[in-house]
Design a binder for these strands. Structure first.
Lengths: 253, 253
DNA sequence: GCTTACTGGGTACGCTGTACGGGGTAGTCG
DNA sequence: CGACTACCCCGTACAGCGTACCCAGTAAGC
């Protein structure tokens, strides 16, 4: 499973694509496709297979055209990824929430999690300087609303949602990775741990790394317990939100 | 800049490599290279160039051998990445710290940050199920020591350091990405924002997304202020540690 | 000295993104 | 209406990737 880096293309060209600023041609045959169709096909492939299965030829096959035809609509693969990103950001739920900042931020985290689970390839493409398309702008606006007017500076507001989003990204990625490893290898964490325990013991694992082997064993055993990923996700998220709460009360003194 | 996925190879073969469990050959010519040499050359390339410059042929050139020779030492590129990961984990400082859990966890975060800054490609390869080599085990052991005996369960201990490490990963990746974009494009965040402001205004940015444009502008302007990355890093880290502190005091009630 | 396990590495296959250029099509202008 | 030309689709080609396969050369064991 590879992952690519968004923002690798020409940012100006990506922006033109994202906001539909291309000057429309007047002469010549009508285009058989649209950028949206190309993007939708690419998202379909990335969703149902994975990011490394996403190639220009594969997208072209999906649309029943030649590979080079895609370059009539998109400058290159990097810009296509930018468009894909913004298009799925556009389906961010943005459900209205009654409650304080904490309830709203929690909802933001859950919606981000939903998005990642629906489009797992996002986990491997999300960049720190994403293209400023309409989808991302709307998502960012919604997220900022959760922390507006609670006493944070603009920079702190941005840092707060970056903190939450960063946590969600890491947590969901761990969970998705683990699930994929289990699916592809056919063995669970517990089984894997048990299978390799003798090898690690032979090396002197428990003597040299007592804490690591104790905690590792416990975590491995608990991993397929009834409360699994949901519990762990909420646990970490609560810590992050507690941290923001601590900042707020410190500022009020 | 691409990134690859560690753990994609055969875990058993990676483990053998990591712990040096290969049965040594008795007959035939002496190998001209060692796994360590191959790994060191690969790390050198990834450090000085980047992860997408790391190819088997490139590593072979660095060592003055043919490309296929590497497959005498390493089953494939995926396993080579595993070995590279564990080898740089092995240089994790693990400085002893006097103080409470918070001072120790802060030190863990700073050392992780150093490691990422010294080997930026780590940011694009780190996986959730890394190979359990000696380097990672020692690092994990050291990190667990920071939160041992402060009243957390084993699962909570693991979750706590995963939380800190996840934060560091995200924060450093953002900083490194930003720096690379500035270097490669030659324009700073502020200049980029100013250059695209008229375009975004034409679209109706400020009307549709008032918060996003206000906060975005502020963040863009502050970004190359004197206190930049160090301040922001500590800010987020303090929030994470506050969150763990809140958990600890809640458990003591 | 023969056998045999092992090493180095050349060649080749299928994959990638995409530069280039050719042939067909449709709207515009003399 | 014919010519022009901008635009469409896309076949070919190239450089690069990971690596399967295979063969020649080497050195240890019998």
């Amino acid at each position: 499973m590879n992952s690519e880096y968004s923002g690798a293309g020409d940012p100006a060209k990506s922006l033109e694509l994202l906001w539909g600023l291309q000057s429309k041609p007047t002469r010549g045959p009508k285009p058989a496709l649209t950028v949206d169709q190309v993007c939708a096909a690419a998202v379909r492939i990335a969703d149902s297979e994975n990011l490394s299965a996403l190639s220009m030829r594969r997208v072209a096959d999906e649309l029943g055209v030649g590979a080079m035809t895609l370059y009539r609509y998109v400058p290159g693969k990097a810009e296509l990824l930018d468009v894909m990103l913004d298009s799925v950001y556009g389906e961010f739920p943005r459900r209205p929430v009654d409650g304080d900042w904490r309830a709203k931020l929690q909802e933001v985290a859950l919606e981000n999690r939903e998005l990642y689970l629906r489009h797992p390839w996002l986990l491997y493409v999300a960049s720190s300087r994403p293209p400023l398309g309409p989808g991302l702008m709307a998502k960012y606006e919604y997220e900022l609303e959760a922390v507006e007017g609670i006493g944070l500076t603009d920079v702190e507001m941005d840092a707060a949602i970056a903190l939450v989003n960063g946590y969600v990204h890491g947590a969901v990625r761990s969970a998705v990775d683990a699930k994929q490893v289990i699916q592809s290898s056919g063995i669970t964490d517990k089984e894997w741990w048990l299978a390799h325990a003798p090898l690690l013991e032979k090396i002197g694992d428990a003597q040299k790394f007592p804490l690591a082997s104790r905690v590792g064993t416990t975590v491995g055993e608990e991993f397929d317990a009834p409360y699994d990923s949901d519990f762990l996700f909420s646990f970490g998220l609560d810590r992050v939100l507690d941290g923001i709460a601590a900042l707020l009360s410190a500022k009020q003194l």
